[in-house]
Design a protein around this nucleic acid. Sequence first.
DNA 1: CTATCTGCAAATCTTTTGCAACGGA
DNA 2: TCCGTTGCAAAAGATTTGCAGATAG
Lengths: 161, 161
Amino acid sequence: MGTAGRPTIDVVDTSSTVDGPGTTAALRQTLHQRGLRMTPQRQLVLDAVRALGHATPEQICSRVQTAAPAVNITTVYRTLDLLERIGLVRHTHLGHGAPTYSEQEHQHVHLVCHSCGSVTESPTDLMDELAARLLTESGFQLDPSHVALSGMCGNCQEEDQ
Amino acid sequence: MGTAGRPTIDVVDTSSTVDGPGTTAALRQTLHQRGLRMTPQRQLVLDAVRALGHATPEQICSRVQTAAPAVNITTVYRTLDLLERIGLVRHTHLGHGAPTYSEQEHQHVHLVCHSCGSVTESPTDLMDELAARLLTESGFQLDPSHVALSGMCGNCQEEDQ
DNA sequence: CTATCTGCAAATCTTTTGCAACGGA
DNA sequence: TCCGTTGCAAAAGATTTGCAGATAG
């Protein structure tokens, strides 16, 4: 009450003009296959996830709000959840709390430094040997990119002396 | 106000009678070296961490409260923090939020199943190869037990078909 | 037109902080 | 006695939920 109804969501085009699995049309189709609806908010959240690489819900929300200030963080949480259920997005635990979201395809191992908090990405095949060993020895099927590896980066080791 | 001052903390003996680095005396000494004080709460929290293997602050608090109901969860958080700073305890991120605490010595790799949430422990030498590779290729010094590896356990893979 | 979505407000949950009183050494 | 510690209450931050109204199809 007070303001004139719900503000319009202006869909500012970012990366969704290109063809391929990331198109607006592709998202619409994926949603429709499951009886879900295409909305500007969903497109914006997906675009933000792609643009940011890996980001917290908070960061994604901020980014979305530069294009459409009225989008609520609640919607961002709900949308990330939904995009994850339909397989377009995945989340990774980098360690200290905040999960980060990224594109499903964009898989890599995260190396997080205890000391300075920096996050480095490495190709997942780094873990191939370990994955094979785990499967043989424990029957455990590793998901190499869902959690980050933790340790100390080169820079911090030097400073630590 | 209302109750007669602060309730007494009854130190119920658990594992701290044995000699060695886990003794009451040992804890007292470690604390004193740094100008810190020995208290029943600190002993109880350390005992609980040892008894539980790896547990969340919440779980540790519950355990402590069976022996001394008056201990506040705030104290548990503060004590875990302190015990970690002085090197008696460490925390691990198992994935979905809650960090878990365990003894410093008690290091192992955690395998967490996405699907059923089960946590398995493996010896850290499982990661030796990977650690060596990371150090050579990226200068990154891996801390193998600080984060859990995530994936799907044998049981859940069967059910998944 | 109808079921799905969204925004808002409030509820939860976890962790942190300020402060006065307590108690270890 | 003195200062580190504790318990309590309240703050802070993150995520979830209920609901009325907006909107995709």
